[in-house]
């Protein structure tokens, strides 16, 4: 799905989290929103997911105005920073949550839900953990379960907030490849937020460098490295 961000701004009280920003994300791209904390990258991601509403501007999905769509109507697979798994449910029930939440008419049968959850557990290479609780998983496993839960709703796009932030370096590298594989397999337009320039450069097709609520530069990783548009970008990507 093609995402168009048209002059979006966001005010929290008197502080501006986003000055009007515009961005076009081609269908099927893997995009990194890169910037230090307070740069507005998470706010932009939450606006795409419908968790936050812009003060002004529009969001277009495949050319259709989606600004007023509720979070449920967006059908965005969202992976939260600390994963936000439902701690009182098993991994299986976590992944099945979105399917069970559908209105009766479009809800799959129990057997179908079970089949899909099993398939997703295989996709994230954790076929054995369905019966466990989130507290019994390692950080890397939790992240993959959160990804499977987001994918279960057959989302129109995948949004990830610092998906590797809470993991150690080795697991981080493995899961980067995991996300790349899942993206390539599903072909979903994927946007992830990170403050780690190496991660953004290595994983993304398109990097959006942000600072102080503004977009500093948009480009392919090698282009940003070769031709930083501003002093901020130069400092940030060489740091």
């Amino acid at each position: 799905m093609h995402i168009e961000i048209d002059e979006i701004s966001k005010q929290f009280g008197v502080t501006a989290a986003l000055h009007p920003v515009s961005l076009s994300i081609p269908s099927g791209a893997l995009v990194a929103l890169l910037g230090p904390s307070g740069s507005g990258k998470t706010t932009l991601l939450r606006i795409l997911g419908g968790l936050e509403f812009p003060t002004s501007g529009r969001v277009l999905f495949d050319g259709q105005d989606a600004t007023g769509l509720t979070v449920q109507e967006r059908r965005a697979g969202f992976v939260f920073q600390s994963y936000a798994l439902f701690r009182h449910m098993t991994v299986f029930d976590n992944i099945a949550y979105g399917l069970n939440a559908r209105p009766r008419a479009s809800r799959p049968t129990k057997a179908e839900i079970s089949r899909r959850v099993t398939k997703l557990l295989e996709l994230i290479q954790l076929p054995e953990v369905g019966g466990r609780f989130p507290s019994q998983l390692s950080g890397g496993q939790r992240q993959r379960v959160a990804l499977a839960r987001a994918l279960a709703i057959e989302p129109r796009m995948l949004l990830l907030d610092e998906p590797f932030g809470a993991l150690d370096a080795k697991v981080r590298k493995e899961l980067r490849q995991g996300l790349r594989d899942i993206h390539d397999e599903t072909g979903l337009t994927t946007v992830f937020v990170t403050h780690d320039q190496e991660e953004a450069m290595e994983l993304a097709d398109l990097v959006v460098v942000m600072s102080m609520g503004r977009i500093e530069q948009v480009g392919k990783p090698q282009d940003i490295r070769a031709r930083p548009a501003t002093d901020f970008v130069r400092d940030f990507v060489t740091a």
């Binding site: 997911g49 979070v71 449920q72 967006r74 697979g77 936000a84 439902f86 949550y97 939440a101 559908r102």
Partner: peptide, 13 residues
């Protein structure tokens, strides 16, 4: 609020 937000993004009312 993260778990509630997660439920909402998964389509729950």
């Amino acid at each position: 609020r993260a778990e509630e937000e997660a439920a909402l993004t998964l389509g729950a009312s």
